[in-house]
């Protein structure tokens, strides 16, 4: 009988803990997005790069497959490869896996989110909204600042 109450209480606590979640976390699958930012891109209709760290606290692997944003016509997943000093950027239509309990780093000179066909120039100091799609966690909407460097 007592054990029942404890389990019920624990479940209640767990549920309560889930309620006031920060915007960038999907409780169900444990996806957390940190340090997201976009580079300035002054040309309307141009392209912009976005970078962030995505952590997967869930017990199963997930996958970043794409997204959408009011800031651009199209959101895609791309990767830059350093081929002996020559930088090659390629679309990765299948997206990237985030291993169970692991992280996916999207950073300058590597994997990144591409904003294609900017609806307005991205200026330093602005904030943009983007919805990222995950195979298991579903869509997660975040806000990210536009800035020059990651460490600023």
């Amino acid at each position: 009988m007592k054990a029942w109450i404890i389990v019920a209480l624990a479940l209640l606590l767990a549920a309560a803990g889930c309620a006031p979640l920060p915007a960038a976390t999907s409780p169900a699958a444990g996806i957390t997005i940190e340090g997201a930012f976009a580079r300035p891109s002054p040309t309307e209709g141009g392209t912009g790069g976005m970078f962030m760290t995505i952590a997967n606290g869930a017990g199963v692997a997930d996958r970043l497959t794409g997204g959408s944003s009011p800031a651009a016509q199209t959101v895609e997943i791309h990767e830059t490869i350093d081929d002996n000093g020559v930088m090659k950027m390629r679309p990765v239509p299948g997206g990237f896996e985030i291993p169970a309990g692991g992280k996916l780093e999207l950073k300058p000179g590597g994997k990144h989110v591409m904003l294609i066909g900017l609806t307005a120039p991205l200026a330093e100091g602005q904030e943009i909204e983007i919805t990222l799609n995950f195979e298991k966690a579903g869509p997660i909407t975040i806000k990210a600042p536009v800035k020059m460097m990651a460490m600023q």
């Binding site: 580079r39 300035p40 891109s41 040309t43 141009g46 392209t47 912009g48 790069g49 791309h78 830059t80 930088m87 950027m89 300058p108 000179g109 990144h112 591409m114 904003l115 020059m148 460097m149």
Partner: peptide, 12 residues
Amino acid sequence: SSCPDICPTTLA
């Protein structure tokens, strides 16, 4: 200038 990754990084 359509380069979203390497060029802005270097310019920054």
